[in-house]
């Protein structure tokens, strides 16, 4: 009997090793094992937003790897502008809706979506299509238009910005996702995942008065970093950003870049962007400044990058 038992357990162990642990929804004890096999970055091209997101998350171990049962989840898209989805001024609503649905399916107790908008927040939430997508998926839109929603946090690693008022939804959540759209930007040159952080803070005038790029990099040192930066490049805005003037500013790239690393995500996005509009990454100074603050790395060639083309 002993020998039989041994074979049984050996077979079970083999099975367990063959199937990745997260397939069984196993929890953090097996996490360290899983991390090694997962890529540092996933880039997908050629699909619809929902399909690309689902595919990319599968590579990363599934949504359950980031969202646990009962978690309070926050999703921070770019909803800065009163613009329709076709103008690519805001994150793709289908992408946000899908992410909300996935979080809910992983057992999230609530999924909150907000942005500190530049245009009238009510119109921006509505006309971006994001409010409808989030509500339909069972998420909750929360306003970011009033200072009382923000609380001060310390940024000990910051250079120019030592403190910032951050939206309480981010401070109080268990896990959050940063979901920017890839855009040209008149001020910061490009708006990707770190620039998107300006939507979680209250006072942005301070940024513009104290070296915009340094302040953006400083914000990225906030200790509660997002589980993933999900860069929406389904449609990108190649010129006249961040608002755009017309659909001529928009290029359909049908791409998605995901990484927990701010700097890596932005570096990769810049390379994708530069194929459309050649841009010197050193002009987007906050990327290098953030690397200097050890927020992440620009050397994506050293990372385990998974590239997927869907057709």
């Amino acid at each position: 009997m002993k020998r039989r038992d041994f074979f049984k357990s050996a077979a079970l162990a083999g099975l367990a090793a063959a199937f990745s642990p997260k397939a069984f929804g196993l929890t953090s004890t097996s996490k360290s094992l899983a991390v090694q096999s997962e890529p540092d970055m996933v880039a997908v091209m050629g699909g619809e937003p929902a399909a690309m997101l689902t595919r990319a998350l599968k590579e990363l171990g599934g949504i359950g790897h980031y969202v646990k049962k009962g978690n309070k989840v926050v999703i921070k898209p770019n909803i800065g502008w009163d613009r329709k989805p076709e103008l690519a001024a805001n994150t793709n609503p289908e992408l946000i809706g899908t992410l909300v649905r996935l979080c809910k399916s992983a057992g999230a107790s609530e999924v909150i979506v907000f942005d500190h908008t530049c245009h009238d927040w009510i119109k921006s939430y509505a006309n971006s299509g994001i409010q409808a997508a989030v509500t339909a998926a069972g998420g909750k839109m929360v306003p970011g238009n009033d200072e009382s929603y923000y609380r001060e946090v310390d940024l000990p690693r910051g250079v120019n910005l030592k403190k910032a008022k951050i939206h309480q939804a981010i401070i109080d959540c268990d896990v959050w996702f940063n979901v920017p759209v890839l855009k040209h930007h008149g001020g910061a040159k490009n708006s990707i995942s770190m620039k998107n952080l300006m939507g979680i803070v209250w006072d942005r005038g301070v940024f513009h008065r104290n070296d915009l790029h340094q302040c953006i990099a400083d914000t990225a040192t906030y200790h509660k970093s997002p589980a993933l930066n999900i860069v929406d490049a389904y449609r990108i805005m190649k010129s006249n950003g961040p608002q755009g003037k017309s659909e001529s500013d928009v290029v359909m790239l049908k791409s998605l870049i995901i990484s927990p690393d701010f700097v890596a995500a932005d570096t990769a996005s810049m390379k994708l962007f530069s194929q459309v509009q050649p841009t010197d990454i050193t002009d987007v100074r906050h990327i290098a400044l953030a690397e200097k603050l050890k927020v992440g790395t620009q050397s994506i060639e050293k990372l385990n990058v998974k590239r997927i083309k869907m057709n």
């Binding site: 003037k245 017309s246 001529s248 290029v251 791409s255 390379k271 459309v276 509009q277 990058v305 590239r307």
Partner: peptide
């Protein structure tokens, strides 16, 4: 309006 970009991009560029 800006000049339209009509080339097809099928590479990640990295």
């Amino acid at each position: 309006e800006a000049k339209k970009f009509d080339k097809v991009i099928d590479d990640f560029g990295f």
